[in-house]
Write a protein that binds this DNA or RNA. Structure first.
Lengths: 148, 148
DNA sequence: CACAATGGTTAGCATACCTCACTAATATGT
DNA sequence: ACATATTAGTGAGGTATGCTAACCATTGTG
């Protein structure tokens, strides 16, 4: 139960959380076998969907990766027809990356299918466990999102 | 499918949990830049430390990876002097992977240093958030299907 | 004793990060 | 105004981590 966290459990939290995240991440990546869109690309698409058009640099910062890594992701999304690159109106160095209609349709309609595995696992939990995970997702996002 | 227990936050749990895990995993991997031991290797070392000597196949099963993936991890750990491979006493096909003294010293004394980043983030949370993460780690581990 | 099953490794492929170095565009300082 | 510095993005190359398929070597069984 939630009320008391034992001393030993508390001490091992760092290790346990790390291992849990590493392993769940592994499982999630393994689930996308017959999809042409990778987990990283989905993550970037989600970001564009949530935030609207962004420059490559902004997108890299929000995803917490270096700009060169994002360049490749954007190129792949463009290739797939899910994102477009247009010139920045006032700064010739920058570019604007936006979802295409296809990209929007994909992220809105198709992601849930690719999340079927996780969705099924979540459905097997009780409401209380789901509530814990919902809170944990927020906490983790804050921790991972804070630079440094 | 998911039972909606609390409006919009709950509805997107699958997406949010996935993104949170992907991003925290990314951060954790990024923390080990000046270390020669990678996250995957640490995970395997932890497993050996907790379970004692294992065959490569057992280790792969516990970590939830395929045997060929574990072969590489074991080779790296052997190269580093943190694990040793010895022949199985009764079955010539199998091998026994065990921590060396160096490996034990490493896993016991040094891991916490490599977890400093996460440890610091966790220390910034309040007790309630930590409790949520502790429960979440257990739930996630169960979902990811880790046989202990 | 031939031969299938088992355990492990090798080879080759894909994804996803990184850093370093480069180009192009913009801002700055004398 | 023009040379120089800074900034944004990209390309090249490297590492880590997973996979499957194919391959030995050993084991155990008919």
């Amino acid at each position: 139960m939630l009320t008391i966290v034992s001393e030993s459990a508390e001490r091992a939290l760092t290790s346990r959380l790390r291992l849990a995240v590493v392993r769940l991440n592994r499982r999630l990546r393994a689930q996308r076998t017959n999809s042409s869109v990778t987990l990283t690309q989905i993550s970037a698409l989600s970001c564009l969907h949530k935030c609207g058009p962004l420059t490559p640099g902004e997108l890299a910062a929000k995803e917490g990766v270096q700009p060169p890594s994002m360049t490749r992701v954007i190129a792949a999304l463009e290739e797939l027809g899910y994102a477009s690159r247009s010139p920045h109106p006032s700064d010739g160095r920058q570019a604007i990356v936006a979802l295409t209609d296809d990209g929007r349709a994909y992220i809105e309609a198709d992601i849930s299918a690719r999340e079927a595995w996780l969705d099924k696992r979540l459905a097997e939990l009780d409401d209380e466990d789901r509530a814990v995970l919902a809170r944990a997702a927020d906490i983790i996002d804050r921790m991972a999102g804070n630079q440094n």
